[in-house]
């Protein structure tokens, strides 16, 4: 019961999905429901599987609640912030469920707080990319040096500054000409090799699970 049924479930759903994706007539197979609506059988099953994981939608809230109630109870460091988190968590979830996604207050908070926090966090990258480049691009080794020179040429090729220094119309097409060559030849070759390798590696990782050599997802006892 504890191990056998899950293994059977895995194999059954693996086969169902794989066959649907491979076999044409199966993929195009339509079923008609008693009320007359027609649906692709594949769509029907995938909707049901998605539905299954959506039912678990409160798991995240549950984990956050458990951790932060613990923080407050044991008065761990920064515990007042945990109160702040819990108030917002429940307040906003209840607001959302009552008001709906298009609700006035719900939307106001989304646009006023979530959107700016989200896009500002993303924009931290403008700074972090500078500090990462500063630390990494040293002539420590041939590799680091090469990466540095390439990044330099690409940067110059991408900006009007680079064009002003060594213009596109001059010898070798300027920074832009070299940049284009780097993008089209070594870069394309490198990424293609990485992609093909990743496919083989990832596929074998999946095969290991399919053959039952990797069963961590089922737990041990």
């Amino acid at each position: 019961m504890r191990r056998e049924i899950p293994i059977i479930l895995t194999i059954v759903f693996l086969l169902v999905r794989a066959l649907f994706e491979l076999i044409g007539p199966l993929y195009d197979f339509q079923i008609t429901f008693p009320d007359g609506t027609k649906e692709n059988l594949f769509t029907t099953i995938s909707n049901a599987v998605v539905f299954m994981s959506v039912v678990a939608l409160f798991m995240g809230m549950w984990n956050l609640t458990r951790n932060h109630v613990g923080n407050i109870r044991r008065k761990r460091e920064n515990w007042p912030y945990s109160i702040w988190l819990l108030v917002l968590l429940y307040g906003y979830a209840i607001l959302g469920i009552i008001e709906g996604m298009e609700g006035k207050h719900f939307d106001w908070i989304y646009n006023g707080v979530i959107v700016p926090l989200d896009s500002t966090t993303l924009s931290l990258l403008a700074f972090f990319i500078a500090s990462a480049a500063y630390r990494a691009f040293r002539v420590r080794s041939l590799e680091a040096g090469l990466m540095m020179v390439v990044a330099f040429i690409i940067m110059m090729g991408n900006t009007s500054l680079g064009n002003a220094i060594w213009s596109q119309t001059s010898w070798l097409g300027g920074f832009k000409g070299i940049r284009d060559w780097l993008m089209n030849v070594p870069n394309a070759a490198g990424f293609r090799a990485i992609n093909l390798g990743l496919f083989i590696g990832g596929y074998v990782a999946a095969v290991r699970v399919a053959l039952g050599l990797e069963r961590r997802y089922l737990g041990q006892d």
């Binding site: 972090f128 990462a132 630390r135 990494a136 090799a193 390798g197 990743l198 590696g201």
Partner: peptide, 13 residues
């Protein structure tokens, strides 16, 4: 650029 050690591409698997 940012990490001390990196396994790239297939080395990961």
């Amino acid at each position: 650029a940012a990490c001390d050690y990196t396994l790239i591409g297939e080395e990961y698997y």
